[in-house]
């Protein structure tokens, strides 16, 4: 057992070392004008983390992200449940949703700005259009894969629709829905950051695009690093939870 844990640990270590090696190689090849070296970046990121002004940007991003993810999750799961249960409506909707998922949503950004204006609501809307569709698609699939006998049991027990949803549909569909929420989490974050890059004067996306425009490579690399660490850490937590609900 401990040998297995040790092997896992060694594997992760190899992976981290490999990523750092690629980073060093890129820096050696492209120079300081494209990417800052790992040590410099970590030092700069460390300094950022103790600056209060940096945390106001973090707070702006987190506020928009929390709102966008709450809307995506609630809307995506609710609509997904309805479309999953109503088979005909689901069959009609699924390819449409699939196509919407394929559209490069960046191209919709001028439209979003024209409709929502600069600022918070545009960021949130951008996050929602990225996140809500995968959550819907996963939820539809989750409901359809529920064994029919469970639904027949609910009917035999004459459960009210709301009661059926809370005590049969949701628990049975839970594992797949959690997977959908994990994917939606990452994409909502992506959407909010893109929104901030274009439509905002605050937030981490703004810091990145500002760094690009001012050729402040250290800032761009450091903020990118922090965003990636946050995204990967959150994803790992959700992945662990995901695996637990799938096997639990």
């Amino acid at each position: 057992m401990s040998r297995l844990t040790f092997n896992r640990f060694a594997d992760s270590l190899i992976l981290v070392v490999a990523i750092l090696a690629v980073w060093v190689g890129l820096h050696a090849y492209a120079g300081d004008s494209a990417i800052s070296a790992p040590a410099t970046t970590f030092a700069f990121a460390g300094r950022l983390l103790v600056q209060p002004s940096f945390w106001t940007h973090v707070a702006a991003t987190m506020e928009a992200f929390a709102l966008a993810f709450a809307i995506s999750a609630a809307g995506g799961v609710a609509l997904g449940l309805v479309l999953g249960v109503r088979r005909f409506a689901g069959d009609v909707a699924e390819p449409i949703l699939g196509s919407l998922y394929t559209i490069p949503k960046v191209t919709l950004y001028p439209l979003m700005l024209l409709v929502f204006g600069l600022g918070m609501s545009a960021k949130v809307a951008f996050g929602v259009i990225h996140g809500v569709i995968p959550i819907m698609l996963f939820t539809i699939a989750a409901v359809r894969n529920i064994p029919p006998v469970l639904l027949r049991t609910a009917r035999a027990l004459r459960l009210a629709p709301v009661k059926t949803a809370t005590s049969v549909l949701v628990p049975a569909a839970m594992p797949e829905v959690v997977t959908g929420l994990r994917v939606g989490f990452a994409l909502t974050l992506l959407g909010v950051l893109i929104g901030e890059m274009f439509a905002s004067q605050r937030g981490l996306g703004f810091l990145i695009i500002n760094g690009i425009n001012n050729h402040d490579v250290r800032m761009t690399t450091a903020v990118t690093l922090l965003v990636v660490i946050f995204a990967v850490a959150a994803n790992s937590l959700l992945l662990a939870f995901d695996r637990r609900v799938h096997h639990g």
Partner: peptide, 24 residues
């Protein structure tokens, strides 16, 4: 070894690497 990398690949907002790729 690659599993965690692949699992969190799409959690990384890749567009932030565009300037780097231009430099490369």
């Amino acid at each position: 070894t690659l599993d965690p990398l692949l699992a969190s690949w799409y959690a990384v907002p890749f567009f932030v690497f565009y300037p780097l790729l231009v430099a490369l």
